[in-house]
């Protein structure tokens, strides 16, 4: 059985706002046919203020789907439509003190129902832009469709590259066979990909061997380092982590890992990923280390 948080259990055993809402003026029906979860979210919106006065749900689905629906109705009540639209699926999961990775799609369904209900109220047509596949990486909740899309978009060829781009496979590594199968499938669907593309699709390869024509000044170098860190921060922030530059000492770049990143079992992989980007961007071999490794001043 799943390890559900007490909050998930509580919302499942005593769901809030369940059942039809008679005078609803915004209704969103969404679901995932493979997974068999489906949710109807009903909103009663005050037209003058756009404030959600009441929200009810009906859900066909598992314990966490019902709990996510219940949580969602509690979260949106009293909010304006625009405020409600800022709720992400991670917010729904956080509200419930987390969901197992296999169950994150329940929170995604909640967010989609909210978008659909608001679109319905506004007289718009909501279309789903997200397709969900079989869960491949259980450590980071990455599904097959996402991995396939990223492989195609970036011309990836190895499990390591997939991990670098999606995080899939970066944890317990049990899904590497699954990732290899997706790689093989993409390759067989797109013959030629992988054999001919690397030089064109992967600018890092031809550039890396060439040393930079002019040695970077320390200011230029730090600006580039900062740019790399900025580029990875949104990804880390999505998982409630963050990174900041601590110091640069020669070829060693020290960073502060913050929030969820500090003490994360994936710390080494995160730093490895950043280091790879640093090497590509700076065109020289550098090492990225946590600030705790900084030599103490004598």
């Amino acid at each position: 059985m799943w390890e559900y948080s007490d909050k998930v259990r509580e919302h499942f055993f005593q769901p809030r706002n369940s059942g039809p809402l008679e005078d609803a003026n915004g209704i969103g029906d969404v679901g995932s046919i493979q997974c068999g979860d489906a949710l109807r979210l009903m909103l009663k919106v005050e037209p003058e203020t756009d404030v959600i006065l009441d929200a009810h749900f009906q859900t066909f689905g598992c314990g966490s789907a019902i709990a996510s629906s219940s949580a969602l109705t509690e979260m949106v009540k009293g909010k304006t439509l625009d405020e409600a639209l800022t709720i992400s699926n991670q917010d729904i999961a956080d509200f419930l003190d987390g969901l197992p990775p296999e169950k994150m799609h329940c929170s995604v369904m909640g967010r989609e129902a909210l978008q659909a209900a608001i679109a319905n109220y506004r007289g718009e047509v909501w279309s789903d832009d997200h397709e969900e596949g079989a869960l491949i990486c259980k450590c980071f909740a990455i599904d097959a469709v996402m991995i396939e899309d990223v492989i195609k978009a970036n011309g990836l060829n190895t499990v390591e590259e997939v991990t670098f781009y999606t995080k899939a496979g970066g944890g317990c590594a049990a899904c590497h066979e699954g990732i290899e199968e997706i790689l093989a499938k993409v390759k067989s669907d797109n013959p030629g990909m992988g054999e001919t593309s690397p030089p064109a699709a992967c600018p890092a390869t031809p550039e890396a061997p060439k040393p930079p024509t002019k040695k970077l000044s320390i200011v230029e170098k730090i600006a580039k380092i900062q740019a790399v860190l900025e580029s990875v921060r949104p990804m880390l922030q999505r998982d409630h982590g963050d990174v900041e530059l601590a110091d640069v000492q020669g070829k060693k770049i020290y960073v502060h890992l913050k929030g969820a990143c500090s003490g994360c079992m994936m710390e080494a992989a995160t730093l490895g990923g950043i280091q790879q980007k640093m090497i590509e961007t700076l065109g020289e071999l550098v090492q990225v280390l946590p600030s705790s490794h900084m030599p103490v001043e004598a």
Binding site: G19, V30, F57, F60, E112
Partner: peptide, 25 residues
Amino acid sequence: RKLSPYWTDKGPATNPEAAFAPTYA
């Protein structure tokens, strides 16, 4: 069943598949 969109207080929605046809991902 009280929580289910396919169900009403009088039993299953008449023609349940039509009464609730969500946008499937």
